[in-house]
Design a protein around this nucleic acid. Sequence first.
DNA 1: CATAGCATCTTGACAGTGTCAACTCTAGGG
DNA 2: CCCTAGAGTTGACACTGTCAAGATGCTATG
Lengths: 202, 202
Amino acid sequence: MHSGEMTKQKDKSKHHHGNLREALVEAGVELLTEGGIPALTLRKCAAKAGVSHAAPAHHFDGVEGLRAAIAGEGFRRFRLAMLNAADKGPQTPRNRLKGICRGYLDFARQEPALFDLIFSFRANSKLIGDLATSSAPSYQVLRDACAPFVPEGTDPVVIETQVWSLIHGYAQLILTGRFGAGSTPDEPVLALLDQIGARPAP
Amino acid sequence: MHSGEMTKQKDKSKHHHGNLREALVEAGVELLTEGGIPALTLRKCAAKAGVSHAAPAHHFDGVEGLRAAIAGEGFRRFRLAMLNAADKGPQTPRNRLKGICRGYLDFARQEPALFDLIFSFRANSKLIGDLATSSAPSYQVLRDACAPFVPEGTDPVVIETQVWSLIHGYAQLILTGRFGAGSTPDEPVLALLDQIGARPAP
DNA sequence: CATAGCATCTTGACAGTGTCAACTCTAGGG
DNA sequence: CCCTAGAGTTGACACTGTCAAGATGCTATG
């Protein structure tokens, strides 16, 4: 922990925090990892950053805007987790795809609240545009890993949908505790990845 | 929907509503379909059922208990959606499995808020026990459809995890608007079901 | 350099939410 | 017939998001 004990030292002047926006996002990430999505509160973020409860309104469009900004940071970490896992082991296309998926699961397990947040926005959200831009780099990582398995002349979205659905569903079901407490057999899902991109059955 | 226009006529006596518990769950489902998860509020449920704001406390353990009870109704409808879709078409094991998955998607698209709710409980929830019992029949439907594809002497959880992860991830990604606005190509996912249960590559 | 503008932050207020305690009412059993 | 326990009400409290109005200090422009 060792962070959060000072709640932002107001060195000299009260006003003009300097980089309040970043501080609020950072505080939000901490609240999220500590207490999950219900703990992510506008007022608590402000308190943790050492400002008054109405200060965030000058940097975000309400609490939804703050959540979107924190999701942006979440997507950044999400992408790094995937790339980090993909860079391990022999760099064959198949192994790299599996690495991306392992990173997907690593992120879901290590930062479950952040994972929840970035996938909590529904299609009808007003911020779906902002989210699309901040999430694009993450999705591109997955797309790139799928590219080698796209048959000539077919739409890449086919393979991407298969891989993404499989790994995302598995991650989601783990987080909702649908596979009992202890056992989380990744093998079935990772094994199915070996079949993806194979020649369709005649 | 011709229901909800009277907000429960208090026929004779104010007290002893009669079946307030069911009325609250019904009101909750309506609120959910009208305004999504954020609209599901204890006080609004009480108002819609025609009782005071503190009445639900005598039937549910706080708002989380109410959400769990509504999720129970959600799981019931979820199971019916899957069974209804599975009963269409020729009753081969493969076609039945696809029907179950089509029902899975039907429910997610037709009742997105209810779908959100039943999968919104995290593994650390205190009600994970209650949820396990109320959701068991739904999951059993999926398990039964997977059974014919489980190779002799192997753990059924392998196939089940593959199928469930695939279809659940796809449903989730649809609801979060990750596949653009209009196009929702179900074919890639349903096609992959044809490969599931096949002999593992030599 | 001075000052006016403006972004930033504070204070105070309000409605909505969940929860608790104390109270009222009704039904049903001794 | 009473009278106890469940069912519902009322009122209060803390917490949340949001808005309006005011205070503050950076900065650009004269």
